[in-house]
């Protein structure tokens, strides 16, 4: 079995897939002002501090901040889907698809608890045939 078949690639660079452990989202926290960013960076765009960024593991739980229900998108994109902005517990905001819920405003509530799950990237492959792992949100009890 080849390496490419054995291990999917991360859909975005702030999604980390450890060789021996569960996938997670990575962020950076400014130790000067506390601002949290997705992925790694060197300078804080809130307070402009340099070299004060510490790499952190973002939480896998959060709450729904806002959303849209997308009914029309580009060719090849399955609709409808729920585009969700989620505030993660402990800080950081991430955007992604809210899954396992009816795409209906009557079913979706602001502030609802969600969990970050890691699944295949909807079958999307790159030109070399590599599979990808992505992150999604699902309702949490």
């Amino acid at each position: 079995m080849s390496e490419a078949e054995a291990r999917p690639l991360p859909a975005v660079d702030y999604l980390k897939i450890p060789a021996d452990g569960d996938p997670y989202l990575e962020g950076s926290k400014c130790s000067a002002c506390g601002a949290i960013f997705l992925g790694s960076r060197k300078i804080c765009s809130r307070c402009a501090a340099r070299d004060q960024m510490e790499t952190i593991r973002l939480a896998d739980t959060g709450t729904l901040y806002t959303y849209a229900i997308v009914h029309r998108s580009f060719p090849g994109v399955d609709v409808p889907f729920v585009s969700a902005v989620v505030d993660l517990d402990g800080g950081g905001t991430v955007k992604g698809n809210l899954m396992d819920i009816e795409p209906d405003p009557d079913r979706i509530t602001f502030g609802m608890p969600v969990k970050v799950v890691y699944r295949d990237a909807l079958g999307r492959k790159d030109k070399d045939g590599n599979s990808y792992l992505s992150y999604f949100f699902v309702p949490r009890e």
Partner: peptide
């Protein structure tokens, strides 16, 4: 690089951005 992100990591079209706002 990699794979298209629209509809995978939420939506980035203008109607969606302003719907979320």
């Amino acid at each position: 690089s990699g794979i298209p992100k629209e509809g995978l990591l939420g939506g980035g079209t203008m109607p969606t951005v302003f719907a979320e706002a």
